[in-house]
Design a protein around this nucleic acid. Structure first.
Lengths: 145, 145, 145, 145
DNA sequence: GTGGTCTAGACCACA
DNA sequence: GTGGTCTAGACCACT
C-alpha cells in the first residue's frame, strides 16, 4: 500500500495518514488481519516525527479500525460501527452534501459522484458483489450506478 | 432559522456556525437575498464573542455564499462554484464515504442515506419540489438512485 | 457624465463617487469650470444618504479637484499637484505594480496596460495634444505605446 | 528585508505589512521558498499585536503569495494569478493613473515613473537582470518605453 | 447601528 | 515553538 503526504496541506499530517489508511481499507489494499508498518519505520519513511504517526495510529485505534499490540504492532481489525456512529456520520455527510448543493452542483451529479466513489471500494471478505461489474480502479463489485 | 452550538465539540465554534448557515441554505431556510443576523446580535444570542461570528461570516464570504455590507449587514448571495471546487470536494467525499464503508455499512445504505439527505434539500429558486415530503424520515424517493 | 455605484462593492460608496469624478476628469467628461450636481440631487439620484455624497465632495475638495461655494455649488478646478503628491503617488503605484508583477504578469504587459489606460485620457484644456485629435471616447492618440 | 510601519497612516497596519511583503517579493528581497518571520516574532519587532500580523499573513495566504505551515511557519510560494485578477487590477490602475493625470503630471512622466518602478523589480528565477543596475535611482533603462 | 481594526491575553493543536 | 481558537473590550469607518 502506498502512502503519500502533503506537508503543505492544511490537513494535519496525522489526519492524512489516518485518511489514507481508511482509504486503503475501503479499496481493499488493507484487510482485517493485515499488519501496519511499525510506527518508527513509517515515521522514518515519511520524514515525520514518530509522534505524528503514533497519533494517527491512536486515532485509528479509537475508531476501532486497528488494534495495537506491544509485540505484533498494529493490526487491522474489523469492529462493527457503534450505534452512535451513524448519526454522527449523517451529520457530517449532511454538511458535505449541502456544500456541493449550495454551490449549484445538481443533486443527480452529487449522487452519481458518491456512487462512483462507492463503486471504487471493495468489500473486505466476500459479501455478495451484487452486479459484478467494476469501473474505475481496483475494485470488483459495488453499488449500482 | 434555528441555530445551536455545542461548545464542547471538537469542531470550532466558527465552523459550526458556518456549517449551519450552509445547511440552512441547502434546506431553503435561507435563500439568496436573505439577510443574516448582525454579527454582534448573533454573538449575543449564542453567548460567544462577536469575533467568533465574524470569522464564520468571513469564511462564508470567502466561499462566495454571503456578502458583507456596511449598511445591510450580511446577505446571502449565490456565486457559482469555482472549477477547483469539485476536485477538492470529491477528495473529502471519498474519505467520508470510505469511513462509513469500512465500518461495515452496506454501500446501498450509504447511498440511500446520501439520497435522503439530498432530498431534504430544496433548490434556491422554485423548480418543482417533487412530492412535497422533504423531511428526515428514511424515505428513498426524490433523487433517483 | 454617467455615474454608477455598486453598493455591494468593498469600496466605500463615497470613494466610488470620488473615483468616478476623477475618472470623468481624466477622460474629459468633466473639465475645469464645470459644475457638479448639487449634493442632495446626486444623493437622491443614487438613493444614498447625502452625507455620503458630501463626503465624496469633501474628499475631492481636499485633493484640490473641486471648489465648494455656498451659492454656486461644486465647481471643478485645476490646482497643480503639491510637491508631496508625487512621492505619495509613487508609493501607491509601487505597490500596485508590484502586485501585478509578483502574480507573474510580464512587465511589458503591465506597462502596455498602463499606456493604454493613459491613452484613454485626454488633456483638459489645450496643452499640446501631441497628435491633435482629442475627444471623450477611448481614443488612440497620446502616449506612444 | 527591512520593514517599517507608520501607525498614524490611514492605511491599516495589516495592509502595510502585506504591502511591504508584496514589495519585498517584487524587488527580490523575498523569493519563493523563503520563510517569513514567525507571526509573534514579527509582532514583537513591530510592537503590534500578533493578531495584526496574523491578519496580514492571512491576506497574503488568500492571495496565494505565502503558505502557512504549522511547522515551518510562513513560506513564500508562487501561485499564478487567477483570470479575474487582471480585470480587477486594471480598474485599480485606471483610478491611480487618472489621479496623477488630473493633477497635471504629463502622461509621459507617469509612464516613465511606472517603467522605472517596474525596472526596480527583479524576476523570481534568474532571467537576465539586464545590465545589473536595478535600484531606485531615476534610470529609464530596462523595460522599453 | 452596521461592520472593521487593533489591542490584550488565555488556552489549544500540531510537529 | 509554531500557528489556531476564543474571549474581552476599545475605538474607528461607513451609512
Amino acid at each position: 500500500m502506498l502512502l503519500y503526504l502533503r506537508p503543505d496541506s492544511d490537513i494535519p499530517l496525522y489526519q492524512q495518514i489516518r485518511d489514507q489508511v481508511v482509504n486503503g481499507l475501503a479499496t481493499g489494499q488493507l484487510a482485517p488481519g493485515d499488519p501496519l508498518p511499525p510506527i518508527r519505520q513509517l515515521a522514518a519513511d515519511f520524514g515525520v516525527h514518530f509522534h505524528t504517526v503514533n497519533r494517527a495510529y491512536d486515532l485509528l485505534r479509537q475508531e476501532g479500525l486497528i488494534r495495537l499490540h506491544r509485540r505484533t504492532g498494529a493490526v487491522v481489525v474489523c469492529e462493527p460501527a457503534p450505534p452512535a456512529f451513524r448519526d454522527a456520520w449523517r451529520e457530517r455527510a449532511r454538511v458535505l452534501l449541502a456544500e456541493a448543493f449550495v454551490k449549484g452542483i445538481p443533486p443527480e451529479d452529487i449522487l452519481a459522484e458518491c456512487a462512483e466513489l462507492l463503486n471504487s471500494f471493495v468489500p473486505p471478505a466476500g459479501s455478495a458483489p451484487s452486479t459484478g461489474h467494476s469501473d474505475s480502479s481496483p475494485s470488483t463489485g459495488g453499488v449500482s450506478k
